[in-house]
Design a protein around this nucleic acid. Structure first.
Lengths: 235, 235
DNA sequence: CGATCCTCCATAACGTGGTTATGCATCCAG
DNA sequence: CTGGATGCATAACCACGTTATGGAGGATCG
């Protein structure tokens, strides 16, 4: 596709620098001059490749959703679909905890220049692509939900509608936690996120005991995978 | 309190103008020069009263939470606490639907100058006050949750923890809907928000039938109060 | 009752960051 | 070798947050 797959792929390097500076120094570091200096080019490169900072930010958002999709995609499917949902929730929360700035931009919580107001009024093509990636990132949740319905853990229901409920609850928790509304770091997982997951599972048709068991199974799997005390969110 | 309750209360008029311009023209309209011109003063007024745009934006956020608290506070308490929770959810969603820009700023989804990244690192006093108002705004949800527990509709549990779950689910839905991730306007209420509320109620201990009944009661009350077809979200 | 101070704000300027006009170098087509 | 197109450097323009300065008005005190 690109005629020059050189090491000097300025466009890709600008996005990489944007993501790195975003994590390191926050949204206010997303400036045309800083990015250009970081990559070693002039600010004009931003305009030849993106047309403006807004489109570059949209590209960063798209990269964030792609990264989130990769995180969620590598959560394997087990025989317990409800446990898989808990694992997806922990993974999603972990991804946001590790790169809060990136996902704040992706979900529009942080707008580095007043641009990128709400996803509603998207003008750039990269912005629409970002919204699309956002939907695709949650495909694993839809699949796990469908499997939970098929396995009789959840009541028969439209899988997209049920997954949208789970997505809402998960996204709400992560958003409020990242905003600092749930106090100090890690307690939110055990005190709110896991109980919330149990509530959702039971409300969708699971029994309390089986939901708790799936939550425990996911917690054990998480501990085994991350190797720490099982809280999950750290860095 | 204030020595001069004149009609020329510049500070209050600046906040009013900010909220109005925010609704009309979006976050990028929140500029010192525009606000000053709107009120008929110079930009210095912003600095004598607030110290900078960041503090003014925090004040707008605080005003948003106060307004939200007023909305929720005027939802009366009935004999059915679960129905009250549905009414609070509809009211919350309605408030955000009517002034999406205001609540996007309040919840930090939109940062009109790169300022106000996450609520975590708040510097201004107004910002901390805004966070506090945000917590207080949800007091009605905590009370309704406590009443649902006391009435035996919800399993015995910590009311703050259960309310935090409800808050997460509600906030997540409203946020994703406002971001456009749930497609065209009104369908989200019947297709996702109400089923989500039923799921949460059942998960917290209610029966499916009673939860559905409460959802219907809240919908009927909403229809009676707003006088339209019952979808709730419009303007 | 005048002197002094303090609050509020207008004027004007500065610094920064997004954007654009212009031109040059490189590369490909012919 | 030539013409055009692409990618980017240089430099300037402009919008916006912020600040330095000073003046007008009222309040306080001698």
């Amino acid at each position: 596709m690109s005629p020059k797959p050189r090491a000097t792929d300025v466009k890709a390097r600008l996005v990489e620098a944007a993501i790195r500076l975003l994590d390191e120094s926050g949204p206010e570091a997303l400036q045309a001059r800083k990015l250009a200096a970081e990559v070693g080019v002039s600010t004009m490169a931003v305009y030849t490749h993106f047309g403006g900072m807004a489109a570059l930010v949209d590209e960063v958002a798209r990269a964030g959703f792609v990264r989130l999709a990769e995180w969620l995609a590598q959560v394997g499917e087990t025989a317990d679909p409800v446990a898989d949902i808990f694992s997806l929730a922990r993974t999603y929360r972990q991804a946001v905890a590790e790169q809060p700035q990136l996902y704040a931009v992706a979900f529009g919580q942080s707008a580095p220049g007043g641009k990128r107001a709400t996803l509603s009024d998207l003008t750039t093509e990269a912005g629409r692509e970002a919204a699309q990636e956002g939907l695709e990132a949650f495909a694993p949740i839809v699949r796990a939900t469908a499997r939970a319905i098929a396995a009789g853990r959840f009541r028969p229901a439209d899988e997209y509608q049920a997954a949208a409920q789970l997505w809402s609850a998960l996204h709400g928790f992560v958003t409020l936690e990242a905003s600092g509304h749930f106090g100090p770091a890690e307690q939110g997982i055990d005190h709110i996120l896991v109980p919330l997951g149990i509530t959702m599972a039971v409300g969708l048709g699971d029994t309390v005991d089986r939901a708790r068991g799936s939550a425990e199974a996911a917690k054990a799997a998480w501990r085994a995978r991350t190797g720490n005390t099982g809280q999950g969110g750290n860095d």
